[in-house]
C-alpha cells in the first residue's frame, strides 16, 4: 500500500505518523500479551528450580561425600559433636552471655516448643495432637544430664524425635541448651534463689499460647474443591 492508495489528500508526513502509530500499537499489543518471556524465564537455576539435566530433576545437588566447604571444616569437634572421647561433655563450648540466652529462648520457642512446650514440660501442642510425649526437662535424669547429651539429641535425634541438624545451626543448638538449663532452673528454683524482697504472685498469669486459636481444622476438612479461590470462608 502506498500513500496514494489511501487518499491523495493525506500528506507524506501524516502517512508516516500513521505508520509509526500502527507500529507502536502493534508493539504494545505484542508486549502486553507476553510474547517475549526469554528474560522472564532465563536459562538458569534459581533455588530448587527443576532441572531436566539430572535424572532426579533436582538442580540443587547433594554434596559429594566428604566435601568440606572453605571455612566449614568442623575441626573444633566438641562444638560440633558435644562429645569428649565418646562421652557427652559437661561444658559449653563458648561463653553463655545474655545474648546467647536470648537467642536460645527464641530458637527454643520456634523449634522445640511445639513438642516440648514453652516451659519444657513435654506437653506441647503437637503432643496434644497425638505425638508421643517427650519426657519433661524437669526430671532428675535430665536435670543431671550433661549439656553434651542435649547437643547429641538435637543433632542426631532420640527415640521418636527426629534430628534437627538441618533446621538448627550448630551455635543455635548450644544456645537452646543454655535456655533449657534456664528453664530447668526456673521450674526448680527456691525462694532463696530470688533476689531479696522479690514477691511471687500466687496466681500465675493466664496465658493464651499460640496454637490454641479456635479456627483450627482437621486435614479431613480440607479438599482442593472447597478452597478453589483465595477468599475462602473458614
Amino acid at each position: 500500500m502506498t500513500r496514494a492508495d489511501l487518499h491523495p489528500m493525506i500528506s507524506r508526513s501524516a502517512f508516516r505518523l500513521m505508520a509509526a502509530g500502527a507500529l507502536v500499537a502493534a508493539t504494545l499489543a505484542l508486549g502486553g500479551c507476553g510474547v517475549r518471556l526469554d528474560m522472564h524465564v532465563q536459562p538458569k537455576y534459581t533455588p530448587l528450580r527443576e532441572s531436566n539435566f539430572f535424572s532426579d530433576h533436582r538442580s540443587a545437588r547433594p554434596l559429594v561425600e566428604g566435601t568440606v566447604a572453605r571455612g566449614q571444616l568442623e575441626a573444633d569437634t566438641y562444638l560440633y559433636t558435644g562429645m569428649i572421647n565418646g562421652k557427652p561433655g559437661t561444658d559449653f563450648p563458648f561463653p553463655v552471655t545474655e545474648q546467647v540466652m536470648e537467642r536460645g529462648r527464641e530458637r527454643f520457642n520456634v523449634y522445640c516448643a511445639p513438642c516440648h512446650g514453652r516451659t519444657g514440660d513435654g506437653n506441647g501442642i503437637v503432643v496434644q495432637r497425638g505425638f508421643k510425649a517427650p519426657p519433661s526437662y524437669h526430671i532428675d535424669r535430665l536435670r543431671n544430664a550433661p549439656v553434651g547429651h542435649f547437643y547429641d539429641v538435637i543433632s542426631n535425634g532420640f527415640g521418636a524425635m527426629a534430628d534437627y541438624s538441618s533446621q538448627i545451626p550448630v551455635k543455635d543448638r548450644w544456645a537452646i541448651i543454655a535456655y533449657i538449663r534456664a528453664l530447668q532452673f526456673s521450674q526448680d528454683a527456691k525462694a532463696s534463689d530470688l533476689p531479696p524482697g522479690t514477691k511471687i504472685s500466687s496466681n500465675p498469669p493466664n496465658v493464651n499460647l499460640p496454637g490454641s486459636e479456635p479456627h483450627d481444622i482437621t486435614p479431613d476438612g480440607i479438599t482442593p474443591t472447597n478452597v478453589a479461590g483465595g477468599n475462602v470462608a473458614k
Partner: peptide, 16 residues
C-alpha cells in the same frame, strides 16, 4: 493440600 491455616493458626508453628 498443605494448609498454613492448620499449621500456623491451629498448631502455632513459627514460619521459621
Amino acid at each position: 493440600p498443605f494448609s498454613h491455616l492448620h499449621h500456623v493458626s491451629g498448631v502455632g508453628l513459627d514460619c521459621r
